[in-house]
């Protein structure tokens, strides 16, 4: 309750108490700069973490329910084997749809490596069949056995082999982002604690005078805590705005490759960004309060 009252007092303020501690130059700028720089970095770590999360979710969802059948056969048998494979797939429980990719779709898949004008019809490239599973899914081992018997040129790829490392990588990236945010928060707390300690040490005489006239530790601490919290809030606001501006300048989805796309904030992601300044202020509040009360205890 005391902490809540302290937080409320921060908002309402006490002009008399604010005047008691002299304005300090270096610690004021250090707090402002630290909070600003850390908020700027937090915006990037947050954007990275959210983007990695979205990527992991997308890869997980999109690829989990799909598989690809690749048919490698001589050109004169290709059509027959494709038909046979589609028939097998239609009869396999757990498969919602199966369709052979058109030459245009296969060309589009190869375009990043061979360009858009590749004559796929004349080249001995495999025929791809896209499989979409039902919620229950199919039995890949059973399907492979049946395909081996009826469509000798067919090779089933259920994406598991390469999907899992990708999703794991994206999840790791997301975790790394959150760890970075935690470290940034801890570093902010450490820097603000140092600045607060420096300010308290520089104001030992002020503290002595305040004690002489009957100030409680709570009153003295509040005078420092309010100042540092508001500075951190101001710095973090500035850093967050600059960080969001920088993120907004990153290439758009349509302009770049798939991985770096969407490194911005979407939907509820904005809420996280908006939370950065108040969270920085909260960190500063806790760090300064801890430093102030500890210093006052030592000075007693």
């Amino acid at each position: 309750m005391t902490r809540l009252a302290d937080l409320l007092a921060l908002v309402t303020g006490d002009r008399q108490a604010d005047r008691v501690v002299p304005p300090t130059g270096i610690s004021a700028w250090l707090t402002l700069f630290t909070a600003g720089a850390m908020a700027f970095l937090t915006v990037f770590a947050l954007a990275l973490s959210l983007a990695a999360g979205r990527l992991a979710d997308r890869w997980g969802e999109e690829l989990a329910r799909s598989a690809t059948l690749r048919i490698s056969a001589p050109q004169d048998q290709m059509e027959a084997q494709t038909r046979a494979a589609l028939k097998v797939l239609e009869e396999t429980p757990g498969i919602a749809t199966a369709r052979a990719l058109s030459p245009a779709e296969q060309r589009a898949l190869l375009a990043p490596w061979f360009g858009p004008d590749l004559p796929v019809e004349t080249l001995p490239i495999p025929q791809l069949i896209e499989i979409v599973e039902t919620d229950e899914g199919f039995d890949p081992a059973g399907l492979r056995l049946r395909l081996q018997a009826e469509v000798p040129g067919a090779l089933l790829d259920d994406h598991t082999r390469w999907r899992r490392p990708l999703v794991r990588a994206a999840d790791s990236l997301r975790l790394l982002g959150w760890i970075s945010i935690g470290l940034i928060g801890a570093a902010t707390a450490a820097m603000i604690t140092l600045a607060a300690n420096a300010s308290l040490a520089a104001n030992a005489q002020v503290i002595a005078v305040l004690r002489l006239v009957g100030a409680t530790d709570h009153y003295i601490a509040s005078a420092f805590v309010r100042r540092f919290t508001l500075r951190a809030l101001g710095g973090a606001l500035l850093g967050t705005v600059l960080g969001l501006g920088a993120v907004a300048l990153l290439p758009d989805t349509s302009d770049a490759g798939d991985f770096l796309t969407g490194l911005g904030f979407h939907g509820a992601g904005w809420l996280w960004a908006v939370l950065i300044p108040p969270l920085a202020a909260l960190v500063a509040f806790a760090a300064t309060r801890y430093a102030a009360l500890r210093t006052l205890r030592e000075l007693a």
Binding site: Q205, V209, R211, L212, V213, G214, A215, D217
Partner: peptide
Amino acid sequence: RDGVALSRRRIGVVHQDCQFLDH
């Protein structure tokens, strides 16, 4: 410490070096 601080409001102290807040 807070108890002492509250008691000190009933005790006025004048120091030789006065101890003011110069700002």
